[in-house]
Simulated scan of single mutants.
Amino acid sequence: MRILHTSDWHVGRTFHGRDLLVEQESVLSGLADLVSSEKVDVVVISGDLYDRAVPSADAVSLCARVLMRIRAAGAQIVITPGNHDSAARIGVFGEFAAAGGLFLRTQISLLDKPVELADEHGPVAVYGIPFLEPEPARHVLGIADKGHAPVLGEAMRRIRADLASREARSVVLAHAFVTGGAPSESERTIAVGGVQDVSMQVFSGVDYVALGHLHGPQTLAENLRYSGSPLAYSFSEARHRKSVWLVELDAGGLVGVERRELPVPRQLATVTGTLAEVLEDPAHKPLEDHFLSVVLTDQVRPMDALRQLQTRFEHAVHVEWRPEQGLQHNMTYAERVRGRTDEEVACCFVSDVRGSEPSAAEMSLLREAFSVVAREQEQ
C-alpha cells in the first residue's frame, strides 16, 4: 500500500494580509498528479485542513475541489482535525463521505476505531487522533492526569489495544508537538500550563505515524515524521523544502519512505539596507517577484516605507525599522529616564521613536508646552 502523508494545509490563511487561495489551490491540486504518477492508494491529512474553525465559503470550495481531484485520481482520503480547524464542522456528514472514499476521523471517543483498508497483503488499520485539547479530552477519555502527554498516552493505549485484537498493519494520524521537532513562527502554540510536547515513545507499536502541526518537514524516526505545510506561512520557513512523504507498506509493515518536493508558487526573501539602497540596488532585481520582508537601517524612520517599496517590489509585505545605531541598548525605558527632567524625557522619546535628535525649533516648542502645563498646575 502506498500512502501520501500531508498535513497543515491551512486553507484560507493569509500571508501578511495577502490572500493565498490561488497559491494554495495551485500547490494542493498538484497532489492529484502525484497520486496518479506514484500510484498512491491513500492520502492522509494530519490536521489543520483549514486555517480557522469557521472557514470562508471560498476556502471550503477550494478544499472540495482539491479533495475531489484526489479522489478522481484514485486515492482514498483520511482526514483528522488539528488545533486550527473545527472537529465538529469537518466531521459533519462523515458517514456519508465514507461511502465515497473520504474518511473523517474527528471524534475523540472513536479514535480507536480505525479506517479499515486493504491491499494484496491484507488489512491496514488507519487510526485518526483528532487534536486533543487536554482538558476536554481527558474527560472524554476518563483520565485524571492533565496535559498533552497523558491524553495522547491514553489515546495510543486504546489504539494499541484495538490493534492487538486484529492482524493488520497500522498507520496513526496525530496532530501534536513531539519532542525533538523544530517549530517555526507560523504555528499556533498548543501549550497548556507551559507544557505542549510529548515523547516519541508515546507512539510506539505502530508501523507509521503521520504527524501534523509543525510546518517544516521532519524525520524524528524512520516511522515517525512531520510532512510540514505545503506552503510557507512565515518568513522563518523561507529555507524549508516543502514536501510530502510517500510511505510504502508491504506484507511486513513499513518498507520505505521517500520525499516528494512540492512546487513553490512564490518564493520568500528578506533584504536589509536603507530604503534608498533597497530601491536602487540592481542586485535585488531577482527579488522583485518574491514575497519580501525588508529590514530598513535608515537612521531616521522613512515615511510610508511599505508603499514606496511596493513601487519596485509588488509583493513586499513586511517592513521592520532597525537603525544601525541609536536603538541598540540593553537598558529598560524606566532605567533610561530615571532622574531626568520632563524636557529630557521628551527629548529622549523623540530620539528613540524617530532615530534623530529634536531640532532647535522642536525643542523650543517642547519647552513652551511644558511651561504652559506648569502654569496650569500652579493655578
Rank of each mutant, 00 (worst) to 15 (best):
L327W: 13
E344A: 13
L275H: 04
R69C: 04
T189V: 06
A316R: 00
K285Y: 01
G326P: 00
M303D: 12
V27N: 11
F93T: 12
L231Y: 05
L296F: 12
S46T: 07
E378Y: 08
E357N: 03
G142A: 12
R188S: 05
R65K: 09
R13W: 08
S351Y: 14
F177K: 00
V151T: 07
S243V: 06
A232Y: 00
D162Y: 04
I190Q: 00
L327F: 13
E368I: 10
W245S: 13
D112P: 05
R65E: 08
F103W: 10
T6E: 10
L102K: 12
A161W: 06
R169N: 03
A64K: 13
A87V: 01
S204W: 05
R367A: 08
C347W: 11
S184H: 02
V60W: 00
H16R: 07
Y226C: 03
S371D: 15
V172G: 03
G256V: 10
A53P: 02
R338C: 05
R105M: 10
R322C: 11
V60P: 00
V353K: 07
D41M: 01
Y208K: 01
N330H: 12
S359R: 10
A73T: 07
R225L: 09
L152F: 13
V373Q: 14
E248N: 11
G181K: 02
H290T: 13
V317G: 03
A88G: 12
G91C: 10
A232M: 01
C347H: 15
A98T: 08
G252V: 11
T219R: 05
V40F: 11
G91E: 08
A316F: 03
A232H: 00
R166Y: 03
T270C: 05
E344Q: 09
Q24P: 02
H215W: 03
R241E: 11
V244W: 04
A176G: 06
R307H: 04
D281K: 07
E357H: 01
A305L: 14
V151C: 06
R65F: 08
S227D: 08
L211E: 02
T14Q: 15
V27G: 13
L231C: 10
Y127D: 05
D48P: 00
V372Q: 07
D342R: 04
E368S: 14
E187D: 06
L20S: 14
H318N: 11
D197A: 15
F313L: 03
L132N: 02
D281Y: 02
L279C: 02
L306M: 15
L211N: 01
Y333G: 03
Q76F: 05
Q201C: 10
P114S: 09
H315Q: 15
M331K: 14
V60N: 01
M68I: 06
V295E: 11
A210C: 12
S359E: 12
T189L: 02
D112E: 10
P136N: 14
E133V: 12
M363T: 09
M303Y: 12
V92I: 14
M303H: 13
R260W: 04
R169E: 03
V198I: 07
F349A: 15
P263D: 12
S364C: 07
A75R: 00
I90F: 06
L262A: 11
A57D: 09
